[in-house]
């Protein structure tokens, strides 16, 4: 005779999942719904206004030049930094897969940047790139090279932001790809060697296709992360010069917490949520992230 497992009763199951469910509802679902709600209001505590405005905040976004500039800046940041990080991260992973002597130590050191808080990374690089006494320009000066205004030159500021972001997050791509490399079946490589494939051909025809799901996962994950970049911008450039490095997250923060226009800031954030969700779904479909495709 089969006896019911004590955890199989509906009540026990509900009891066990309730803490996690409560946590999700309180800290994820409620803020999401609440901020969606206030995006339909003109709410500012400094003016005591709390007026329902329907879709006005979203309509205002369409006419807001700063919003569009922030959207373009964010797009450039995501595309450029992910491209750099994927190429460099994959190259580093392949390099470390050679298992040269001492590579474990170098690998460990390279991972350090991603352990730092992004706002600290921003402030640290701001100091390193200080045109008067920063170490980078000092070194360039010693080498007789020109000393750029890394964060103040309109042509260079966004590039600097991309480079700093890449400095911090290339190791993330490297770790993911390297882990996948270690798990690849060795017989495939032996077979390609038997078939006479050279190193380049093996890389193009065997290694990279096998790594594709891991690279895609890392790229999508990092894209979402880069899309909501705030801390590094806050620490490094504060959105300047002018608005040239203002990202959508920074603009939402500034609108909400500096200018206390909570309704409008929520609308900016919700546009970001929608864009990120749609982009993720499209990328997931195209890059074969689903389990069935990855087999």
């Amino acid at each position: 005779m089969r006896t019911a497992h004590p955890l199989h009763t509906r009540r026990d199951i509900l009891l066990l999942i309730s803490p996690a469910a409560a946590y999700l509802v309180l800290f994820s679902v409620f803020p999401l719904v609440y901020s969606l709600g206030i995006s339909f209001f003109d709410w500012s505590p400094t003016t005591s206004s709390f007026t329902f405005v329907g879709l006005d905040n979203y309509a205002m976004l369409a006419r807001d030049a700063v919003f569009w500039q922030a959207a373009v800046n964010t797009g450039i940041l995501v595309v450029a930094s992910i491209a750099i990080q994927v190429v460099l991260g994959t190259a580093l992973a392949l390099f470390f897969d050679l298992h040269l002597r001492g590579s474990w130590f170098v690998r460990g050191v390279l991972i350090l940047p991603m352990l730092l808080t992004p706002v600290v990374v921003g402030l640290m690089w701001r100091a390193l790139l200080n045109p008067d006494w920063g170490m980078v320009n000092w070194l360039l000066g010693e080498l007789g090279l020109p000393k750029p205004l890394w964060t103040a030159d309109p042509k260079l500021a966004l590039v600097t932001l991309v480079l700093v972001d890449s400095w911090q997050w290339t190791p993330f791509i490297m770790v993911i790809v390297f882990a996948r490399l270690q798990a690849l079946p060795r017989d495939v490589f032996e077979a390609s060697a038997v078939d006479g494939a050279g190193r380049i051909a093996t890389l193009r025809q065997v290694t990279l296709p096998l790594l594709a799901p891991a690279i895609a996962f890392a790229a999508v994950f990092r894209s979402i992360d880069a899309f909501r970049s705030f801390d590094v911008v806050f620490g490094l450039t504060y959105g300047g010069p002018g608005r040239l490095t203002t990202t959508l997250s920074f603009y939402a923060w500034e609108t909400g917490f500096s200018f206390t226009r909570y309704g409008y800031a929520s609308a900016i954030s919700y546009v970001m949520v929608i864009v990120a969700t749609v982009a993720f779904m499209v990328l997931a479909a195209r890059l074969a992230l689903r389990r069935a495709d990855a087999r």
Binding site: P154, P241, R243, S258
Partner: peptide, 18 residues
Amino acid sequence: FEVVGAVAREINLALTGA
């Protein structure tokens, strides 16, 4: 603050030569 910030950004851009 918002007005001051917006003008300050344009001043900054002018000083950079943009």
